[in-house]
Simulated scan of single mutants.
Amino acid sequence: MAHEDQFASDPDHWSVLVPELLVRDLKRSLAFYCDLLGFTEKFGRPEDGFVYLEMGHAQIMLEALPDDPSGLWVTGELMPPFGRGLNLQIEVADVRSIYDRLAAAGVCPFRPLRRSWYREGAHENGQDEFLVQDPDGYLLRFMQHVGTRPVSTLPG
């Protein structure tokens, strides 16, 4: 299977790890995730302010933050930006198209598009990547795999 084939839609696919993000304005978040980033709705429960989104095999849940969050699974006070210290890596088939769509909409990246190499044993994995914050401050890292290369010098 070619690397890009893994991004084909599969209605029966369920990720084994799916983040659920509390959001202040579900309508605004849906516009960001669907219209700008390219996610689609797998299913939703409008009566609960909940939507399950996917892009290829990446899946994410959004839940509207109610006026009284006492019944939610919240471990502390929620203050923007949400998700401090966490970034969600999302592998995509065409990172440039997402980056360009955001730029056309006037959304500034947290980190601009660039090529990065990350060591894994005796080789490095290359990826084109950028980071952007969603309307609530969650940090999303979109990346596209560009290949591997040997490590010229190992650390240490």
Rank of each mutant, 00 (worst) to 15 (best):
E4P: 12
E4C: 06
D5T: 15
D5V: 08
D5W: 00
Q6F: 02
F7Y: 14
A8S: 06
S9K: 14
D12Q: 15
D12R: 11
H13L: 11
H13N: 13
W14V: 15
W14T: 15
W14C: 14
W14E: 14
S15Y: 03
V16W: 03
L17G: 02
L17A: 08
P19V: 06
P19R: 11
P19A: 04
L22R: 14
L22V: 01
V23P: 04
R24K: 15
D25C: 04
L26I: 13
L26E: 03
R28H: 05
L30E: 14
L30R: 13
A31K: 07
C34V: 04
C34R: 14
C34H: 10
L36H: 01
L36M: 04
L37I: 13
L37T: 05
L37W: 00
G38P: 05
T40C: 10
T40D: 12
K42T: 00
P46E: 11
P46K: 14
P46T: 02
D48Q: 12
V51I: 09
V51M: 10
E54G: 05
M55Y: 08
M55H: 10
G56H: 06
H57N: 14
H57M: 12
A58K: 05
M61K: 13
E63A: 09
E63Y: 03
A64E: 06
D68Q: 11
D68I: 09
P69T: 05
P69D: 02
P69N: 07
G71Q: 08
G71V: 03
L72I: 04
W73P: 14
V74A: 04
G76P: 03
G76S: 12
L78A: 12
L78S: 08
P80F: 00
P80A: 10
P81D: 01
P81A: 10
F82I: 09
G83I: 02
G83T: 02
G83P: 06
R84P: 02
R84M: 07
N87K: 09
L88V: 10
Q89Y: 07
I90E: 00
I90G: 01
V92E: 00
V92A: 01
A93V: 13
D94F: 00
S97L: 11
S97F: 03
S97N: 07
Y99H: 14
Y99V: 08
D100K: 12
D100F: 08
D100V: 07
R101Q: 14
R101C: 10
R101Y: 02
L102D: 12
L102Y: 04
L102E: 15
L102Q: 09
A103S: 08
A103F: 05
A105P: 08
G106H: 11
V107S: 03
C108A: 11
P109F: 01
R114N: 08
R115W: 01
S116D: 06
S116I: 08
W117A: 14
W117F: 13
R119N: 04
G121Q: 07
G121R: 04
A122K: 15
A122Y: 06
A122R: 15
E124T: 04
N125G: 05
N125L: 14
N125A: 13
G126W: 01
Q127D: 11
E129A: 06
V132Q: 06
D134M: 05
P135A: 03
P135E: 06
P135I: 07
G137W: 06
R141N: 14
H145T: 10
H145Y: 12
V146Y: 00
V146W: 01
T148G: 00
T148K: 11
R149N: 01
V151R: 12
T153R: 15
L154E: 15
L154N: 06
P155I: 00
P155V: 09
